[in-house]
């Protein structure tokens, strides 16, 4: 697998906007961003409404994912290109989610919505929505080799790599959420003992594009992460750590990397688990 198999630039997307086998999908933290404007012919997936079980804290099941992609007009053999705001946090989350359910060809638009906007590329009005005929999408059973659960995290303390990708202030316990959100939260601040704080932002340039594979390899080496060992990445709700999972698993080709989507909102609410405060 090469970098271009999972990451495309804006010129590539521009050239494929009318390709019926390429589906551009916007996934934003701000789920209303698509309504303002979006890349022409892009469809929307709402990470809250479409990807989460409406009752339990979990993902939609296999049948639910099949129904979603069928309704969006996405076929099993389509190339799906994901993009979104906030440096592709939720587009990365959707990428990981598509891989969890076994979609073959899924890619990220490097830099996402921000890079597209900073380059002053065209966006169409939010009301201009493409018509895609429904498909009969078949998903695979969840590939849980990509997904960590709370017991995996507890078992990894002191033995596997735990990479906390939140900002240093969230890691140390000064903040409970990324600073664009109010800080009123119920869980305890801090981090999982033995976790290394390697903020997701170290993977990216200011414009949201990913750093080169050489720079990324050097980053994790300099941080003392032994990539030969199993790795679990986490953040607050699993979206920024999906970006780090993308870097380690997809760009650098490390097979033994999982994303913990329960992340700090789960771990920081568990009764009796160890928590550490302060910086690395």
């Amino acid at each position: 697998m090469s970098r271009s198999d999972v990451l495309v630039d804006a010129d590539w997307v521009q050239a494929h906007l009318d390709d019926p086998k390429v589906v551009v999908v916007e996934v934003d933290e701000d789920t209303a961003a698509y309504d303002k404007n979006h890349i022409r012919n892009a469809v929307r997936i709402d990470w809250k409404k479409d990807l989460q079980d409406p009752v339990r804290r979990d993902f939609v099941d296999q049948a639910g994912f099949e129904a979603l992609l069928s309704a969006k007009g996405i076929a099993n053999d389509d190339t799906v290109v994901l993009y979104g705001g906030n440096n592709n946090w939720f587009a990365s989350y959707a990428f990981w989610y598509f891989k969890l359910y076994g979609h073959g060809d899924v890619r990220l638009l490097d830099g996402g919505r921000k890079k597209w906007e900073l380059d002053s590329r065209d966006l169409v009005d939010g009301a201009e929505v493409p018509a895609r005929a429904a498909t009969t999408y078949k998903a695979q059973a969840q590939n849980t080799s990509l997904r960590a659960f709370r017991d995996d995290v507890l078992a990894a303390i002191g033995s596997k790599n735990l990479v906390d990708v939140r900002s240093p202030d969230e890691f140390s316990g000064r903040l409970l959420a990324p600073a664009h959100l109010p800080q009123e939260q119920s869980q305890r601040p801090g981090h999982v003992p033995s976790a290394r704080n390697i903020p997701w932002s170290k993977n990216a340039n200011d414009d949201g594009t990913f750093k080169s594979n050489e720079e990324l390899t050097a980053l994790y080496q300099a941080e003392g992460v032994d990539l030969a060992k199993d790795t679990i990445a986490y953040c607050r709700i699993g979206e920024r750590s999906a970006l780090t999972w993308f870097v380690l698993h997809q760009l650098l080709g490390q097979e033994n990397v999982k994303n913990y989507d329960g992340s700090w909102t789960e771990y920081g609410s568990l009764v009796g688990v160890p928590i550490e405060l302060g910086s690395n």
Binding site: N86, S167, P168, P178, H180
Partner: peptide, 11 residues
């Protein structure tokens, strides 16, 4: 943050 590390970003 005070160390120059990314903490958040908004449009």
């Amino acid at each position: 943050d005070a160390g120059g590390e990314f903490t958040a970003e908004v449009p």
